[in-house]
Simulated scan of single mutants.
Amino acid sequence: MIEQFDITSPVRLLDLGAGSGSLSGAAKTRWPDIKVLTVDIDPKVDLPNTSARQLSDEFSHEHFVIDALCENLLTVLNCTNAPIDVAVCNPPFITPKWRNEFSEILEDAGFLDCLPFPADVDAGLLFLAQNLRLMSENATLGIILPDSLITARKYQKFRAILLSTYAITKVIQLPRGSFHHTDALASIVILQKTKKHQDFIRVYCLTRDKNLSEPLFVDVHSAAERLDYSFHFHRLHAVDVTCRKKTMLQELAVEIKRGSLSSAQIKSTGFPVLHITNIKESDIGQWLDFRSFDTEIPDDCSAIVKAKPGDILISRVGRNLESKIVGVMAGTFPVSDCVYVIRCSPDTRNTVLAQMASQKGRAWISAHAYGVAAKQLAKKELITFPVLLDEHKDV
């Protein structure tokens, strides 16, 4: 992250939720003369890392044991008289219990009116907003944001405001497993606290061998839709060389439904329900006999979503959801709310299943899913799956 800053000689650096000081320690290595302010609520936090020990110099480092999300932090850190021109941040991947002071933090950064559920906001967004209100004009921030803020449709308005209010220098998608003890998916965002017209955003990915990819230049409108490298790479490179017309799944499907029974409900139903654990990756693309799930459902459960012969099933959630796609050859049975049931006409169902289960189809699904830990595939994305009707003709 520190290598990505274009600033050459910053004076004062802020590290909110600093923990052991990994980020600010790396910054001190690059800029030895910088004044560092670290903030962490945990009084037991020390600086055990070799790269962070140099922060202990009392003349170049001040540490504050305080909640990084308190509203009066601007005063505590004396940001007015001693401006902060660079900041680094790796927020916790949590959703904190809502406090009224969060509204002022979000409003000062311009984000309050663009959130779907302000009282259920990710810590990453709160730390982003807090950094922006503490930094001086034209200051630069490097922050690690969870995949939900980068890709989720519910945060699309937030991304649009972010892109129109601040100058995004670059976005770097990190590989899954970048953080110890978690598979959380996240991206580094480098931005400046300045309003500057941008036509394109540079989006990268960091490979597993720690090499930075060549940038994709994503227009601002598309960046508001999603900011992850994998999505835009697939969109730019999945070009049909024959220019054949593709039909979206919603135009072919008679019905696309999400199962209606939660995991908790399944435990108390008393009858078999197909869940994502019953769909094996090794069966991808096959038409399967599910008659073992056939069951008599009580009359008061008639509204339960059921699959039947000819339907296509795809996992809605999971790290490998793009590998759990099968057809129902036999059986009529209820499905969990972690499964989509796709019902197509007899003359297109084989084509749809084959293309969804193909290598290109799985790549498309993976690129359009989102999520910090387990991935999710939104129905709004699924219905746009492109199908070539002249491939895999049914007989």
Rank of each mutant, 00 (worst) to 15 (best):
M1R: 00
D6G: 12
L14E: 12
L14G: 05
R30P: 03
W31C: 02
P32F: 02
I34L: 02
T38R: 02
V45K: 02
D46P: 03
P48D: 09
T50P: 14
S51T: 15
R53P: 08
E58P: 15
E62W: 10
C70N: 04
E71I: 09
L74S: 15
V86T: 06
V88C: 10
T95A: 07
E104Y: 14
I105Q: 03
C114F: 14
L115F: 15
P118N: 06
A119T: 15
A129F: 06
R133S: 15
L134W: 10
L134Y: 11
I144G: 01
P146L: 04
A152M: 07
K154T: 13
Y155R: 02
I161L: 13
Q173F: 01
R176G: 12
H180M: 11
H181N: 15
H181C: 11
K193A: 11
T194Y: 07
K195T: 12
T207S: 13
V218Q: 00
F233C: 09
F233H: 14
H237Y: 08
A238N: 15
R244W: 13
E255P: 03
G259A: 07
S260G: 12
T269R: 10
W287D: 02
F293Y: 02
T295H: 04
E296R: 11
A303Y: 12
R319T: 08
L321W: 02
E322H: 10
K324I: 04
T332Q: 09
T332I: 06
P334M: 03
D337F: 06
C344H: 04
S345H: 10
R349W: 06
T351V: 09
S358A: 07
K380I: 10
I383T: 08
T384V: 07
K393Q: 12
